[in-house]
Write a protein that binds this DNA or RNA. Structure first.
Length: 90
DNA sequence: TCTCTGACTGCTT
DNA sequence: AAAGCAGCCAGAG
């Protein structure tokens, strides 16, 4: 999980990754594990740059996350982010 | 140990 | 477009 934190911390502003992407880059097989790790402690991480593979976000985070992303230039089309455009490394 | 529960994902209805 | 379903990992009771 140290890897997970390292990966998330390395996502540049204006870009996003899906939980699955982070899991893969960190050498894990489960996207859910990534979400669980962030849920425990994401205080010093740019957690808002991690979204679902579809570009949507969990309800309890939707408002705050989209707001933080908007501040970095990642504009959401309603409640969904344009992954084709903002996904990191593609 | 077993069961339940998610900041998830891809596939099929 | 929306809802169901089966894998997925680790912590809590």
């Amino acid at each position: 999980m140290e890897q997970v934190r390292a990966v998330v911390a390395s996502i540049p502003p204006g870009s996003v990754l899906s939980y699955g992407d982070v899991a893969e880059l960190a050498g894990l097989r489960s996207a859910r594990l990534v979400g669980r790790i962030l849920a425990e402690d994401s205080a010093d991480l740019p957690w808002h740059r991690v979204v679902r593979s579809t570009g949507t976000v969990a309800d309890h985070l939707r408002h705050r996350q989209l707001e933080l992303l908007r501040a970095e230039g990642v504009l959401a089309d309603g409640a969904r982010i344009n992954m084709r455009r903002y996904r990191w490394g593609t």
